[in-house]
């Protein structure tokens, strides 16, 4: 049976889809058979970030409704053989995701894969609760910013109560914190919450800190998951995240501002 990871946040625009793409690609690159599912029915974007938007024929809702089988809907990644993408429907609404239907698809996928990464929509409505219901692990993507931190805390409450594990009284979902769009320079100036601040408030296992980086936008623009860009700080930080998820003990990187020359140090950046 595959392990199910939900990438969630509550607030939109914090980097859930980028993180889902990075997690899935990272796991697949390490040899794990992985599928990443877009749960954002009506507003699909994972296909764009993964660069397979022109190869979508059937989608998640088609499979749930029995209009296509899984093999028809799954898109194999061109860069990595062990990675598949299951796109969301662009035309239906989120109620098309029934708990029974989603459960069936996850069960079928679980037979041939090691990991299923669920890219949750923002918010706490139906699509988001469906994405988290069957999860074993949750990665709560958070920006160091007040509304994002508060919404993440709200998600923790929902994860603890509205999941299969909670309903069946099993071991709770394993929750991880991923801090994205982190700007060490702004933290140093006292303008942005630090990693320690956010961890103190949410008290979660820290899976990684992704620095603010132009590389993320470049990667989205090109349809190449940023985790493949190992030249960039964001790409390296995402790779660390995947390794940490798999149990490696790595120190956090890019938490401090790059040291500049004497001139810019005197006059500020």
């Amino acid at each position: 049976m595959a392990r199910i990871i939900v990438i969630t946040s509550g607030k939109g625009g914090v980097g859930k889809t980028t993180t889902a793409a990075a997690m899935a690609m990272g796991l697949a690159q390490r040899g794990h058979r992985t599928v990443v599912i877009d749960f954002d029915v009506g507003l699909r974007n994972l296909d764009l970030i993964m660069g397979c938007e022109r190869r979508v024929v059937y989608d998640f809702v088609n499979v749930i409704n029995g209009e296509a089988n899984l093999n028809q809907a799954l898109i194999r990644d061109k860069r990595c053989d062990s990675l598949y993408v299951l796109p969301a429907s662009q035309t239906r609404d989120k109620d098309a995701l029934t708990q029974e239907g989603v459960g069936k698809v996850l069960e079928d996928l679980g037979k041939g894969h090691d990991y299923i990464v669920c890219d949750s929509p923002a918010g706490i409505e139906h699509g988001a609760t469906m994405a988290m219901y069957f999860a074993d692990d949750a990665v709560v993507v958070t920006n160091p910013e007040v509304s994002s931190v508060r919404d993440s805390d709200r998600m923790l409450g929902i994860l603890a109560s509205k999941s299969r594990r909670a309903e069946e009284g099993g071991e709770p979902i394993k929750e991880h914190l991923l801090l994205t769009r982190y700007s060490p320079a702004r933290v140093e100036r006292g303008e942005m919450l630090s990693v320690d601040d956010v961890q103190e408030i949410l008290s979660l296992n820290l899976l990684g800190v992704i620095p603010e980086s132009q590389a993320v936008l470049n990667a989205s623009n090109a349809g190449i998951p940023v985790v493949l860009d190992n030249e960039s700080t964001a790409g390296m930080a995402y790779n660390d995240m995947v390794s940490r998820y798999l149990g490696e003990d790595l120190p956090m990187r890019f938490l401090e501002e790059e040291r500049k020359g004497i001139f810019s140090r005197i006059f500020g950046g």
Binding site: V146, R150, D153, G190, E200, I201
Partner: peptide, 18 residues
Amino acid sequence: GSASVAKERLQILVAHDR
């Protein structure tokens, strides 16, 4: 340090929410 203000506000808010 607006970050420290943010942290204080969040601590109160999150405790209340919880």
